[in-house]
């Protein structure tokens, strides 16, 4: 019998890293279906180009870093899909491609590649293109109108709901349209029901901790019920805040990315609360459009701090009580 020497343990759990990232990629496919339903094949083309650019950039950076080509790594696919879903469907093709290249080459590769990035690469890519081509990202096409593959001046573009809220107006969208996502906005972020269903899928697969999106949305609801327009009641204000803009999308897919989250439960709760507070501050006093994404980027900088604080707490408790057994 041929024996192999190997350190213990000799049995392992069945879950493997490539499957974890594939789960998130699978959970991003339903928003693409809805985008295709509302905006036609152009949304799929934008998504395809972004994903191809992100995957190619990841392969090149893998070769450059000497780690070897890891073709089973699904994290650039997730990055590409998230960037594509945050764009309006009428965006010129080069903008999401540039965002994906920036995300992989500048935010992910210099810090160590997969599993070692400090900032969320999709959020950073979106920040870059908002800085460079901000005016082209502010106007969204109207859903359920045919959108040709090459967009020219004949396409009607309107402002999104979040910018209307920022200016102090109330978006004139009825409740059923809000629920179904039949209003102008970024490609994947208007369909609240679909995103909620994907959240349930991710919770069942244990990719996402339940208290992270809950804390985020609860804090935002708290803010929205206190400070609102005089024509809206508190409940309506909460619903409008949650629906307008990319908030639900960020809460489900980008806030819960395991690499940038703190690792202890208390750290995760603090992180979600900070992100919510900064999001609402950006919405009230900021000039930027995707406030949830930028707030997330800022909170990513606080992750090591939360990690360190909670870990110090654990170390102190261990030295005082002698054991952490419950």
């Amino acid at each position: 019998m041929k024996m192999n020497a190997k350190p213990f343990p000799y049995i392992r759990a069945e879950e493997r890293s490539p499957m974890l990232m594939l789960d998130t990629a699978i959970a991003l496919i339903p928003p693409f279906f809805m985008a295709c339903f509302y905006y036609g094949m152009r949304s799929l083309a934008v998504g395809a180009f972004t994903v191809i650019a992100a995957v190619a950039a990841n392969w090149i950076s893998d070769l450059c870093s000497g780690r070897g080509l890891e073709w089973w790594d699904a994290s650039p696919v997730v990055t590409g899909m998230i960037i594509a879903l945050l764009m309006p469907a009428s965006v010129p093709y080069y903008i999401p491609i540039i965002a994906a290249l920036f995300a992989i080459f500048v935010v992910k590769f210099p810090y160590g590649g997969t599993g070692h990035n400090l900032f969320n690469p999709a959020a950073a890519g979106l920040a870059f293109v908002t800085l460079c081509f901000g005016d082209q990202l502010a106007n969204y096409p109207i859903p359920l109108e045919t959108l040709p593959m090459t967009v020219d001046e004949t396409v009607k573009l309107t402002q999104g709901a979040a910018s209307l809220l920022k200016m102090g107006a109330i978006p004139t969208i009825s409740m059923e349209q809000l629920a179904l996502g039949n209003f102008a906005g970024p490609m994947g972020t208007t369909n609240i029901l679909v995103i909620a269903a994907c959240l349930i899928y991710l919770l069942i697969r244990r990719n996402v901790k339940w208290y992270v999106p809950l804390t985020y949305l609860a804090t935002i609801s708290l803010f929205a019920s206190r400070v609102h327009h005089e024509n809206l009641s508190a409940a309506e204000s909460i619903i409008v805040e949650l629906v307008a803009g990319s908030l639900m999308f960020v809460a489900v897919y980008m806030l819960t990315e395991p690499v940038t989250l703190p690792k202890r439960p208390m750290g995760k709760v603090l992180y979600a609360m900070t992100a919510a507070v900064i999001t609402m501050l950006f919405r009230y006093y900021g000039v930027v459009l995707n406030s949830a994404v930028f707030a997330l980027l800022l909170t990513n900088a606080f992750t090591p701090l939360f990690d360190r604080l909670v870990e110090q707490g654990h170390i102190v408790e261990r030295s005082v009580t002698g054991s952490e057994d419950e």
């Binding site: 540039i98 800085l131 460079c132």
Partner: peptide, 22 residues
């Protein structure tokens, strides 16, 4: 043909400097 007008911002200037050093 494409203008990356965001490169004027000092944050991206830092990134560019880092890449030059690398």
């Amino acid at each position: 043909k494409i203008r990356f007008s965001g490169v004027m911002v000092s944050g991206l200037g830092f990134i560019l400097l880092g890449f030059l050093a690398a």
